[in-house]
Design a protein around this nucleic acid. Structure first.
Lengths: 243, 243
DNA sequence: AAATTAATGTGTCGTTAGTACATATTTGTT
DNA sequence: AACAAATATGTACTAACGACACATTAATTT
C-alpha cells in the first residue's frame, strides 16, 4: 500500500462519508466444519434466520472483531459452536463478490475444519445445529454452497498429499474404516489390497495390537496415526497416490 | 452469519462508535507479480514510502472499493501498475494479523500473477517500480516477505500440477528455456532427456516448425502451448512429476 | 457342535512410469 | 577448417501401479 492511499485514508478519517466508502465493508469468517459418521461425510449447518433465506441452511460464521486475528475468529466460532478447540482448521479462500450478502458488502474468509464426531457430544438440538450429508446438499444460504464445494475440493486435494484425513477418525481405527473414509471423500471405490499396500508404504500408522470389538463379523486390527503426523497444522509429506 | 450478528450490526449502524468497532477494518489486496528474465524469477516491487518502512520495498496493492469485487481490485492494480489486463491471476491467501499494518487494522487478500516480461515494456522508472530477483529478497515492508514466500510456495505447487508456467514465457519458446524456467522455480537441476520425455508425454506443446535465431549456438526448435491450455484461469490436468 | 456368513489378511504378475546415463549432430565462432 | 557449445535422441534398471484370488477368522445361524 502506498503513502498516497494512506493519505486518502487519513483524509477519509476526517470526512465521515468517504470514510465509510473505504471502511463500510464487513469482514467475516465462515467455517466448513466436516465430520464423518455412518460412512458419510457430513457438514455442520445452522438454519438461516435471515428473511431472504428462510428455510435454507448456512455455514457457521461470524464477523471478525477489530482486535482479533483471522484464525482466532475461526477458532472462536468453532469453540462457540462445537465446544472444541484442538482441531484441524485451515484457511481455504476468501469470497468477496459485491452482492453475496443481502444486507451489505461483506467479505468472508472461508476455513475448513475436520473433527472427530465420535469424540464429543455436540449440543446439536440446543442451537439448531445439525449434521448434513454433503452429498445431499443442493442449496444453502448466501454463496455458502460455493464455499462448501470449494472447501470439499480443497479437502480432496489435501487428502492426496497429507495425512489430514485422520482428523476425521477416532484415535484408534481399522484399515477398513480408513479406506471407507477415503472412498467417501474421493467418491471412488478402492481395491483393498492395493489400498493397504500404499498405506503401509507411507508408514503413517502404528499397529497397536488391538482388535475391533463392536463389529458383527471378524474384527480387524486397530491402528493409530504416528505421533509425528498428529498435527493440526499441515506438514509436508510425500503425496499419496490412490487412484 | 446469524440474525443476531446482523442485529448487532444494525445497532452498530446507529451508534457510530461500535459501528467503527465492526467496520474499522481496512481491506486491501496485494499482488505478487512474477516475471522471468535472464534465467531468474523476479517480482515487481515498489519502494515503500511509509515512514516505518523507509528503504524497504513492498508488493503492489490497494484498498478494495466498496463496489468492487476482489478480483476486480486485483486486476485494477495490475492494470494500473503494468498496463496489462489479460494475465494469469489467482488468489492465494488472506493475511489478517492484527498488527501487520502500522497504521491500523488492515486485512489483505494476496494474489499472484504470472506475466510475460518480454511482451510488454513496463514504465518502470516512471513510478519507481522495479523487478527484483526473488532469490535475493531478504526483507520487505509489512508482512510482504511472508506473502511473497506463500505465493512462491503456491507457484511451486501449481507448476507441478498445471500448465501455468507458460504464462511466464513468450508465446514461442524452446525446450531449453522451458526447462531453465522449471529449474529456476523449483530450485533444482533437471536431466534434459528425462525432462523432454515427461513434457512430451503431457502433450501440452505444439512444434511450430521454427527455430531459435538469436542464440550464439546451435538453435533449438520452438514450441507453443496448445490453445486448449492457454487459459488464464486454471484447468484440471494430470500432474507433472518432475523430480 | 457343525455349517454358514461375512469380513480380514495377504502375494504375484504384467504394465507403466521414473531415473541414470553417453553419443552423434548441428550451428556459430574463431 | 577446426573448435566450442548446444541440440537431439534411446536403453537398461528400478520402483510404483493396477488387476486379480484364496485361505483364514470370528460371529451367527441351524
Amino acid at each position: 500500500m502506498t503513502e498516497k492511499a494512506l493519505q486518502q485514508l487519513k483524509t477519509a478519517e476526517t470526512e465521515k462519508i468517504s470514510h465509510l466508502d473505504y471502511f463500510n465493508i464487513g469482514i467475516s469468517i465462515d467455517c466448513v466444519i466436516l465430520g464423518y459418521e455412518e460412512k458419510e461425510l457430513k457438514v455442520l449447518l445452522i438454519k438461516s434466520d435471515m428473511q431472504e433465506f428462510s428455510g435454507l441452511y448456512s455455514l457457521l460464521g461470524d464477523f471478525i472483531k477489530p482486535d482479533e486475528d483471522l484464525e482466532a475468529a475461526s477458532y472462536r466460532v468453532l469453540k462457540e459452536r462445537t465446544g472444541l478447540d484442538d482441531v484441524f482448521l485451515e484457511q481455504v479462500k476468501t469470497f468477496g463478490n459485491i452482492y453475496r450478502h443481502p444486507s451489505g458488502r461483506v467479505i468472508t474468509v472461508a476455513y475448513y475444519s475436520l473433527i472427530d464426531v465420535s469424540n464429543h457430544k455436540l449440543q446439536l438440538d440446543l442451537n439448531e445445529l445439525h449434521w448434513h450429508k454433503v452429498d445431499e446438499i443442493n442449496q444453502l444460504a448466501f454463496d455458502h454452497k460455493l464455499i462448501l464445494d470449494t472447501c470439499l475440493g480443497r479437502l480432496r486435494e489435501q487428502v492426496m498429499e497429507h495425512p489430514v484425513i485422520f482428523n476425521l477418525l477416532p484415535e484408534k481405527f481399522s484399515l477398513r474404516e480408513l479406506q471407507e473414509l477415503y472412498e467417501a471423500i474421493l467418491g471412488v471405490e478402492l481395491d483393498r489390497r492395493n489400498f493397504r499396500k500404499k498405506i503401509s508404504i507411507k508408514d503413517w500408522l502404528v499397529d497397536i495390537d488391538e482388535m475391533e470389538n463392536d463389529v458383527p463379523h471378524r474384527p480387524g486390527k486397530l491402528y493409530m496415526l504416528k505421533k509425528q503426523y498428529r498435527n493440526k497444522a499441515l506438514k509436508a509429506t510425500a503425496p499419496l497416490q490412490l487412484a
